[in-house]
Nucleic acid binder design. Structure first.
Length: 562
DNA sequence: GCCGTTTTCGGCCCGACTGTTTTCAGTCG
């Protein structure tokens, strides 16, 4: 499946177009097309084969032709052609904060600056001072020096920890802040941290936060700082009466905001961070988000859905689903103990699960070919079951389920025979091994596992590790169809660096009638809470409690496993 | 480059902050 490849290509076109000094709306058009392809929940090659490229939003004749060339020939001559018009170095220079397309183009074209390194040298030597001005070049030099430590997106727990620290610091100074941005939307990775405050002067407090390295800008309404760990923090100060509109603006996403503002324009109104206004400038709403949505003729859109993926249309027809909540979760179906690679014994894990209010815990230690994880043989599983049965007598009505994380081996075979597998309460299959195999082979293995009568759930289907390893390039629509045809469950793994399936595919799966499981994949009692990150993915995938197996009672879950 | 319940041409979200900036372009969120 080449969705990500095509999206990357279009994104590259967007950047090149900027760096070539073209009309900026061209770059915006490429970026929008890239988003369309990235958010697509079907195989772009299918769309192309069926001549439906032009049916996709933001893809017209020009871009369709380029996608066609790439998928037909594997070449992208349009990239090379555009590259030839970009002055050498301009693309790289745009990575420096404060350097946009205009400055990059000028630096590269007029002053022959060919790289960030050269820019640093020239600035230090004072070569560009006359052209750029003294303050600008000093400031730029600072940015260049930091640009080397290119900031990376954070996983959710890290982002939450930093946001908490800042929130506590502000509170300590009697300032209440509200978290907005991608963290509020529950996005799986977070770049910047965004806060709102209704206390004037709170920017002055933020710039004194001990973790601040640089003040990027500091005005009465907006303050931006960079922490020494590289994270950018933005604070917006607003009047209490503007808070709702400001929260919407600062929560984003950008594309969602644009969609809302365009809707306002259609209705002869104007939406900005101060409120919703009619054509004569009278304010119609703004104090709360609910008020603004309502005045726009929309039902409330939860932050997790604000990605311009159809939520505005759904809110217009009152079709926003009641999203899954943490309190709907009644058990966990992927958990490990010291029997394989977990850090705590079964009793400790079970007691922790009970404290979370769960009714059941699916214990899924690894099968034996997962040697690095101390995978269990048939004999060891039988011994484990004795311990489980003893604990179940003691902890009833709480129930520990006899599960397994069954390895799908490199050749597609399973670790155990069907007869033995039938003795488990349920079987989850995983593909860890052989991830360098071709996409076709990996897809075949996954399909075999899913259609195997012994298997109930496919755990973390793509096996991605965010920031470290891209997932298997599986044909996921095929996988979803196989799950549907065989009545199997697909998992959303809650480990913060997995979150697999992701929201786009989880949504597609449920639309196709496939039930999902939202698990923690915990290897310690604390990690049972990772389920909350899985719930965020589920919410971002438009899932209701009905879509999720482990929001059902123990009895119903067991019925599902037959 | 895309798009159209006023448009096939002329728009494309809207506003804060910075700078050698006295009316605005560039950048960013």
């Amino acid at each position: 499946m080449k969705n990500n490849e095509v999206a990357d290509l279009l994104m590259q076109m967007s950047l090149l177009s900027e760096a070539a000094g073209e009309d900026r709306f061209k770059a915006i058009a490429y970026r929008k097309a890239a988003t369309t392809v990235r958010d697509l929940s079907e195989d772009i090659e299918n769309v192309w084969r069926e001549n439906r490229l032009l049916d996709l939003p933001n893809i017209g004749e020009g871009i369709a032709k380029k996608i066609d060339e790439y998928l037909r020939t594997g070449n992208a001559t349009f990239i090379d052609k555009l590259k030839a018009r970009v002055p050498e170095g301009a693309l790289e220079l745009m990575n420096v904060p404060g350097v946009g397309p205009r400055t990059a183009y000028k630096l590269a074209k007029q002053y022959g600056v060919k790289s960030v390194e050269e820019l640093e040298r020239d600035l230090e030597a004072g070569k560009l001072t006359d052209e750029l001005g003294k303050q600008a070049s000093t400031r730029l030099l600072e940015e260049v020096r930091k640009a080397k430590y290119a900031e990376k997106r954070m996983l959710l727990p890290e982002a939450e920890a930093i946001a908490d620290e800042i929130t506590r610091y502000m509170e300590h100074n009697n300032i209440e802040v509200i978290t907005a941005g991608s963290l509020r939307r529950g996005k799986s990775t977070v770049g910047d941290l965004d806060f709102l405050s209704t206390t004037s002067g709170s920017g002055d407090v933020l710039v004194r936060f001990p973790g601040v390295d640089t003040v990027i800008e500091h005005g009465p309404k907006r303050t931006s700082v960079r922490l020494s760990i590289g994270t950018q923090v933005d604070l917006r100060v607003v009047e209490p009466s503007h808070l709702g509109a400001a929260m919407m603006y600062f929560t984003g996403s950008k594309d969602h905001n644009i969609a809302l503002r365009n809707l306002a324009i259609e209705k002869k109104m104007k939406l900005n961070e101060y409120g919703l206004f009619d054509s004569s400038g009278n304010r119609l709403a703004g104090r709360s988000e609910e008020e603004v949505f309502s005045a726009l003729g929309l039902s409330y859109i939860p932050p997790e859905l604000r990605e311009n993926r159809g939520e505005v249309e759904a809110a217009q027809s009152n079709n926003i689903p009641k999203l899954l909540e943490m309190k709907d979760i009644r058990g966990d179906l992927q958990v490990h103990s010291t029997w394989s690679d977990g850090e705590a014994d079964i009793r400790t894990m079970a007691e922790a699960a009970r404290r979370l209010g769960y009714e059941y815990l699916g214990l899924t230690d690894h099968s034996y070919s997962m040697r690095v994880a101390n995978g269990l043989s048939e004999d060891r599983f039988r011994n484990q079951w004795k311990e489980i049965e003893m604990l179940n007598d003691e902890l009833a009505p709480f129930r520990i389920l006899k599960g397994i994380e069954l390895e799908v081996r490199g050749d597609g075979s399973l670790d155990f025979e069907r007869k033995f597998l039938e003795e488990f309460d349920y079987v989850g299959a995983s593909i860890h091994q052989g991830y360098r195999q071709s996409p076709d082979k990996l897809t075949r293995r996954a399909l075999e596992a899913i259609s195997n009568p012994s298997v109930d759930i496919l755990f973390h289907p793509t096996n991605r590790l965010i920031g470290r390893r891209e997932g298997h390039q599986l044909d996921i629509p095929k996988l979803i169809k196989a799950a549907k045809d065989n009545g199997k469950i697909l998992e959303i793994d809650g480990q913060p660096d997995r979150l697999d399936l992701d929201e786009v595919w989880a949504r597609r799966a449920w639309e196709e009638g496939v039930t999902l499981a939202v698990d923690s994949d915990a290897h310690s009692p604390d990690q049972l809470e990772f389920t909350k990150y899985g719930v965020l993915v589920a919410r971002r995938g438009w899932l209701t409690s009905k879509a999720v197996l482990n929001s059902q009672s123990l009895k119903d879950v067991l019925k599902n496993f037959k």
